[in-house]
Design a protein around this nucleic acid. Structure first.
Lengths: 223, 223
DNA sequence: GTCCAAATTATAAATTCATTATTACAGTTT
DNA sequence: AAACTGTAATAATGAATTTATAATTTGGAC
């Protein structure tokens, strides 16, 4: 569960935010002033900080800078009606985003999620289907974390299967899916590629029989 | 020199931005529609993208998502007077910031700089990737503290690989990355440079096989 | 149900085709 | 001159397809 630290002196505002964040499965800690924040962050390491620029005791910008001295934790600035320059300075300080008051709590929650997603670098280079993981960037497919060593044709074949598990493809459909250009090859070619793919799948996962032959029609992939 | 891609159909607006960015030492490429953007980004890898949400042909949001499938390149959404929901969706899509029209070019330049600083400030302090250390000042790369004696082409090639370990580049992409100018050379040239680089890497670290040939596609670098 | 023939699929080996590695050399640049 | 880059030619490797043969499935006849 992600942990959000809110540093905000307006109690009402903070309470609304806390309610919304809690409803979105965030754990929230709230400070009404900035004095103890640095120490707390050092020991508790929240996943993200919502930081009000206008605090009673310390200056929000300085606090942001100070936190940046020792942590890359994402920080979203919360601030009342600032002019353009201030916005930019906020970002120059090393903040990751900002929201202006008045804001809707929904907006803030969305920003928090967006910044978290960004900072986690959770980049989806492909898709996950059950135990399979297709990565177009690296041209690899993993089965249970092990990389299958596939040829280009096998890669495209398996990817096609994974995208439509359970569907029965006839050989023409398979060939059309695998070759962008409309080259013509024999049906037996499909059999051979299926055989080779089966072999590689079996060595990676001996107990499982993924590719089903459908007599008179073609093949289907059963996850 | 940082390379900015602008995807914007209002030509006047784009021209102003281009002028400002050029004045700030940015290299700029401009697309007036979204249709060819994805392919271009794949081969040219800009440092940041300014993306208009309202394009004549494709939907800006979809384009953003599509780019996020294969690249972490920072994206700033540019958009006319959107309501709150649209903003949020923009960020949920994986965009890094947004600006609303009408905007001042100065603001945009500042945002670009801020986002670039942010996205670079992340993990790789300076330019250390695993056992490799890239120094742009001296045009050298160290492996395990030993300086590799690389030619300019080899330097850019290795740097490109290091910036996207695991990613499979085809030969066009490699050539576009290595030569800023659009000169055209043969695919076989890539093979030769890869061979030479492999040799130098091997003499520096005999046990390790860094560059993987991906049959039918190209090469990738495995740290 | 069992048996058989026809149709279909599986497999392995052989062949063709495509891609990559390597070498040598020529044109440039420094 | 020495180093770098690009090209061309050739060798080596790897993949795709075809071919040939064996194994399996199916449906009908008994």
């Amino acid at each position: 569960m992600k942990h959000v630290l809110i540093v905000e002196d307006e109690k009402k505002l903070a309470d609304v935010l806390i309610a919304y964040l809690n409803q979105n499965q965030f754990k929230v800690t709230h400070f009404e002033s900035g004095s103890d924040v640095v120490d707390w962050v050092k020991t508790n390491q929240p996943n993200i900080i919502l930081l009000d620029l206008m605090l009673p005791d310390v200056n929000g910008k300085d606090l942001c800078k100070e936190i940046r001295q020792f942590s890359m934790v994402p920080i979203i600035m919360v601030t009342a009606m600032i002019d353009e320059i201030d916005r930019l300075i906020g970002l120059e300080l090393g903040a990751d985003d900002y929201v202006c008051k008045p804001f809707s709590p929904k907006e803030v929650v969305a920003r928090v999620k967006a910044v978290l997603r960004r900072s986690e670098g959770g980049l989806n280079h492909g898709e996950v289907y059950d135990a399979f993981e297709v990565n177009d960037q690296t041209y690899t497919i993993k089965l249970h974390r092990d990389r299958l060593d596939l040829t280009p044709v096998e890669f495209r074949l398996l990817k096609m299967f994974l995208q439509s598990p359970g569907r029965v493809f006839n050989r023409d459909q398979i060939l059309n899916n695998i070759f962008e250009d409309g080259r013509i090859v024999l049906d037996r070619t499909v059999d051979t590629h299926v055989k080779n793919l089966r072999h590689k799948l079996k060595t990676a996962s001996p107990e499982h029989d993924y590719i089903r032959s459908v007599y008179g029609i073609g093949y289907s992939f059963e996850l």
